[in-house]
Amino acid sequence: MALLEVQDLEIAVRTKGKLLPVVQGVSFDVDDNETLGIVGESGCGKSLTALAIMGLLGGTTVRITGGNIRFDGMDLLTLSDGERRSIMGNRMAMIFQEPMTSLNPVYRIGDQIIENIRQHQKMTNAQARDRAVELLSLVRIPNPSERVDSFPHQMSGGQRQRVMIAMALSCDPKLLIADEPTTALDVTVQKEVLDLMADLQTRMGTAIVLISHDLGVISETCDKVAVMYRGRVVEAAATENLFAELAHPYTRGLLNSIPVVDSDVDWLEAIPGRVPTLEEELTGCAFHPRCALVTKLCATSVPQETEYKPGHSVRCHFSGKVAP
């Protein structure tokens, strides 16, 4: 049994009295020491999936409407608030995209790390402070014993993101969920943060779910990949197998859309059209209005998940075929 198992997850948003599905039948699992990448464009449901795992989809507008999420054998969807609080930030932690807004600007960073440690572990303030200094040096903040008393505004974006990682790691989580952890950072800093995460994983055996829109980041850091489009996983495989042979036309289109630094092309092969909005009702495959391989079948029936190669699943009626 894997550490995290997500099965047939369904999430819906309530607008104008209607329930609109935003995540449909998403399943994946992640094991210790493994990194799963979830990739897709805005609105594909990748962040909502992460929030659902963390139990952060409260309220009445966005709701989990089906499926189940199991972590270390526990059903996360039926936990009481108290049980949930004891797991989150402790055995499961999350890093958000915006290091600016996810730290409290009026508290010293050390105090914010200490608060999380003391919430979950029996430690005196002095012990927790030592632990905070240790964590800051672990994420390679220079002069950790002084910087522990810094305010967030005294640090750069990359440093703040490292503080977020330190905070997430403060109780040795078994699972780390990182939602676009480097998107707001410069490329040179991004490389440092990704290297740091990989390094920490080899040392502590943490399972990581990395959410990103950047196929390059995914390709370099993940063991396996799930590609999402409009609420569904359209293709999933081990990273090497996925990029060896892209089976879904959307994944291929996404890759061809990226201008690469290592060669020249005259024109990018852009995917025509745009991601349909939530309000637009779609029949059949959600990608069919933009797909070069589209047939009548695509417009009427939703493709089921099929095995393209062993360990490589895809949702497409014509998987593997390339447009003429």
């Binding site: 490329v187 490389k191 390059g216 390709s219």
Partner: peptide
């Protein structure tokens, strides 16, 4: 050179 090296790249095909 540092900038160019820092860019994450998609590794296509089997190594």
């Amino acid at each position: 050179r540092k900038l160019l090296e820092s860019i994450p790249r998609v590794k296509i095909g089997k190594e």
